[in-house]
């Protein structure tokens, strides 16, 4: 009993005091379910391209960083509410999100694809996708794109990307629309062997934006400038390329694609 009161007291203290901003510890949010960009391994460590970029940026800015995982649909509300200072979670820079947050320059450009079974002919045109059930992550930019460009498509929303892949593999849905490299990694895996990317990749900046950026609260303009400067540095001094090569065979650096 005594112990549970102790726990209670600690919890209340933590709830009330944890937030007080310590000098120069940045709290960074990521998702943890988006390999190879961010994922959790068996030891509970969050890893991936996003994490390496975030750590490189923090080293460049000479600040301490605490990277934690949060649910995807809680990212923007969490940033606005002040739960953390930056989102480094492969978040596409979109017009709609820019109403809520500021973004740094893009740190990678991936585009989107629709993946479907190899055995099925699927035209990625409004007619070809009419009536088809396509899975996307809730609160993702792909849902917006589908809604606008393929109005006859039935959209099914998932909490996590891994879940729509499970459902695609199970045959519950006709296809999945997601980020190109994330999907490529899955298509190359054992689970995704019977599936392929259909048609051309999507690069509609109107919906997908110019790439993935780091989201910062509107009020933190100074922090935004520092992140931007640090990004420019690591993209020119070779640090970025080195991280890139750890995960991908080709460069993700914005402006060097296709």
């Amino acid at each position: 009993m005594k112990n549970s009161f102790k726990i209670l007291a600690v919890a209340i203290a933590a709830a009330l005091a944890a937030g007080s901003a310590h000098a120069e510890t940045l709290r960074i949010a990521t998702e943890g379910t988006y390999p190879p960009f961010n994922f959790v391994d068996a030891s509970g460590q969050v890893q991936g391209f996003d994490i390496d970029v975030a750590n490189a940026l923090c080293a460049e800015m000479k600040v301490e960083c605490k990277i934690e995982t949060f649910s995807w649909d809680g990212m923007i509300p969490g940033l606005n509410a002040g739960k953390f200072d930056a989102i480094v979670a492969s978040m596409s820079i979109t017009e709609k999100r820019k109403e809520a947050e500021n973004f740094t320059q893009p740190y990678y450009q991936a585009g989107a694809v629709i993946a479907a079974p190899r055995s099925v002919e699927l035209e990625t045109t409004p007619e070809g996708l009419a009536g088809k059930v396509i899975g996307v992550q809730r609160a993702s930019s792909y849902g917006q794109l589908l809604k606008a460009k393929f109005p006859e498509t039935k959209i099914r929303e998932y909490d996590k990307n891994e879940e729509h892949n499970l459902d695609l593999a199970a045959g519950r849905i006709d296809g999945v629309m997601a980020q190109r490299l994330f999907m490529q990694q899955w298509l190359d895996s054992e689970e995704g062997a019977d599936f392929e990317a259909k048609g051309k990749a999507f690069f509609d900046t109107e919906y997908l934006g110019p790439g993935a950026g780091i989201a910062i609260r509107k009020s933190d303009t100074e922090l935004l400038a520092r992140f931007d400067a640090a990004l420019s540095t690591i993209m020119s001094n070779g640090v970025y390329d080195e991280i890139n090569d750890r995960y991908f065979k080709f460069s993700l650096k914005p402006g060097q694609q296709q």
Partner: peptide, 10 residues
């Protein structure tokens, strides 16, 4: 939940 994530007004 869908609307909350679209409007950012949870």
């Amino acid at each position: 939940r869908s609307l909350a994530s679209e409007t950012y007004m949870p």
